[in-house]
Simulated assay, not measured.
Amino acid sequence: MGRERGDALGAVIGAIYQGFGDHELYPTVEEKAAHLLYFVVKDHPLSDGNKSAAPRRCSSPSLTATAR
């Protein structure tokens, strides 16, 4: 799997927890996982392996633990 490129991965993870006022843009774990996959592929936060790493990030235990 690729190495992190700066703080880009942190920014991608932060993006799935963004909101407006008291409303999360991606309130369910399914929406968070779908957008995490999208942002990892789109924003290339890793120096290599972004497309192969995206599905692994979506199944991360930390995502499911914090989203509940």
Rank of each mutant, 00 (worst) to 15 (best):
M1S: 08
G2C: 06
G2D: 01
G2M: 02
R3H: 10
E4V: 14
E4P: 15
E4T: 13
R5K: 15
R5S: 15
R5M: 15
R5W: 14
G6K: 14
G6F: 13
G6D: 15
G6E: 15
G6T: 07
G6C: 13
D7T: 11
D7S: 13
D7F: 09
L9E: 01
L9H: 00
L9Q: 00
L9M: 14
G10Q: 14
A11N: 12
A11Q: 14
A11G: 11
V12P: 03
I13Q: 01
I13L: 14
G14K: 11
G14Q: 09
G14S: 14
G14E: 11
A15R: 14
A15M: 10
I16E: 01
I16C: 04
I16A: 03
I16T: 04
Y17G: 05
Y17T: 04
Y17F: 15
Y17S: 06
Y17I: 04
Q18M: 12
G19L: 08
G19A: 07
F20V: 14
G21T: 11
G21M: 13
G21H: 09
D22R: 10
H23G: 04
H23Y: 12
H23N: 09
E24V: 09
E24Y: 14
L25Q: 10
Y26C: 13
Y26K: 07
Y26E: 06
Y26D: 12
P27M: 03
T28K: 03
T28H: 03
V29M: 02
E30D: 13
E30P: 03
E30N: 03
E30M: 07
E30G: 05
E31M: 11
K32E: 07
K32V: 08
A33E: 01
A33N: 00
A33G: 02
A33C: 07
A34L: 08
A34K: 04
A34F: 07
H35I: 13
L37Q: 06
L37C: 05
Y38N: 09
Y38W: 14
Y38R: 12
F39K: 06
F39P: 00
V40C: 05
V40S: 01
V40K: 02
V41N: 06
K42V: 13
K42S: 11
K42L: 13
K42E: 12
K42M: 12
K42F: 09
K42Y: 12
D43Q: 10
H44M: 06
H44V: 04
P45E: 00
P45S: 08
P45W: 02
L46A: 00
L46K: 00
L46F: 03
S47F: 10
S47W: 08
D48S: 01
G49C: 07
G49E: 05
N50R: 05
K51N: 04
K51W: 01
K51Y: 02
S52H: 07
S52V: 08
A54E: 01
A54L: 04
A54P: 03
A54H: 01
R56V: 10
R57I: 02
R57C: 08
R57E: 03
C58Y: 00
C58V: 05
S59G: 11
S59N: 05
S60Q: 07
S60P: 01
S60R: 04
P61V: 10
P61T: 04
S62Q: 13
T64F: 15
T64K: 15
A65L: 14
A65R: 13
A65P: 03
A65D: 06
A65W: 08
T66K: 11
A67T: 02
A67G: 02
A67C: 09
R68H: 10
R68Y: 08
R68V: 12
R68E: 08
